[in-house]
Design a protein around this nucleic acid. Structure first.
Lengths: 212, 212
DNA sequence: TTTCTTTTCTACCGGTCGGTATATAATAGA
DNA sequence: TCTATTATATACCGACCGGTAGAAAAGAAA
């Protein structure tokens, strides 16, 4: 029951369009003309609805990260650390080569692709990416305590390694690598994963609920 | 014995300064004002000496790639494929965290960090990066024929894997990762390297000349 | 219908972008 | 010294940047 002239466009759809533009062109590479044309609205409408360009970018990143976090949570709940990593990498490979949207990682394309004046933005994005790495680290610490990883395993270093491969794959995809190429890379990357000689007490029980 | 007024600045030194600016700010993020200030020359001097901004960037990339190719050749001449990869990754880690210049990879920071109008530039950089990957692939094919890699090894996929890790590390470094962090990542990444059960006839002989 | 609120549109702001016209200064050869 | 040639410095170009003022339009409440 709002008063005043009703908005003529769908805010969420417009945000999706803006996300695509940022993904493709980066934060600074996406001009307001690019954005308003893709969103199908005029400049003042954009400012009234989203604040300014930076706020619009943040909202686009929020939406993007929502998807990423959902996929990440699903992967983190896999039974073994190895399965966590494999799912993480495969989902990323599928995502970064999905023909429904631009290739590569939106946050990397959008934020690494920005000059120095948006330094604060970049640092925020770096720390946002670090969240995912930290989540993996805690998951691997849990795996270690469960005996799913050997005693000499370094959860932090392992999480960093996976993050590095993820970032590399995102660049590969942005540069045109095919999904099959990324799959082959994943097969090799996974051979670095430590195998433990200890018993894994919860493994069978967890495996039964894995596909729930 | 050239005629006319002599140039008052050192072209190579100016190009080095331009390289630093592009490295730090990217192709589009580096404005002509940024460049001329860092190079210590005026705008018309820049255009007279280098053509235009894009030509200047290409020359800067040429110089950067010269260093990269030299290091790459050194690594490729190592005895075993594993040593090739280890040296490749370690040199890259050192390079990308060298305090003497901006962090990360100049070509990635410079080119991935550009909008859509410089699409041709980006594609050229992508193909330039592919050269290094191709060189690794031929080196690994040689290793396979020498028995240094198992018969079921896929030289192309292995080269892609190493390239992916290299790209990931470059992003890590640009985001602030320490050299020690990258070293730990390398230790893990190397565990993916295939081990062969076959004899390696030339291994001892080559190892003797390795440190020559 | 009148009033109030909010969105939409056109047109514009100062600033910066990459690039250049023009005039002057500095050298080599005649 | 005079001329040809090249580099320098100032000042400027049209185009585009992110962002906004102000009027018209469309709804809800009175």
């Amino acid at each position: 029951m709002t008063v005043g002239r009703p908005r003529e466009f769908d805010v969420d759809k417009a945000l999706d369009q803006a996300l695509q533009v940022f993904w493709l062109k980066g934060y600074e590479g996406a001009s307001l003309s690019d954005l308003t044309e893709a969103m199908g609205i005029t400049r003042p409408s954009l400012y009234a609805a989203f604040g300014n360009k930076e706020a619009l970018f943040r909202k686009a990143v929020d939406r993007y990260q929502g998807w990423a976090k959902a996929a990440s949570c699903r992967a983190l709940s896999a039974t073994t650390s190895r399965e966590v990593v494999e799912q993480m990498l495969r989902v990323a490979a599928d995502w970064h080569t999905d023909p429904c949207h631009p290739r590569g990682c939106m946050m990397m394309q959008g934020t690494l692709a920005c000059g120095s004046d948006a330094e604060a933005l970049r640092e925020e994005m770096v720390s946002r990416c670090a969240e995912g790495q930290a989540a993996m680290q805690t998951r691997f610490e849990q795996a270690k305590s469960e005996g799913d990883l050997p005693d000499d395993a370094d959860p932090g270093a392992l999480a960093r390694y996976v993050t590095t491969v993820l970032r590399g794959m995102a660049v590969d995809a942005a540069g045109g690598a095919s999904r099959q190429d990324l799959y082959k890379t994943i097969d090799i990357a996974l051979r670095a994963w430590p195998v433990n000689g200890k018993a894994q007490p919860n493994r069978v029980a967890k495996a039964m609920t894995r596909r729930a």
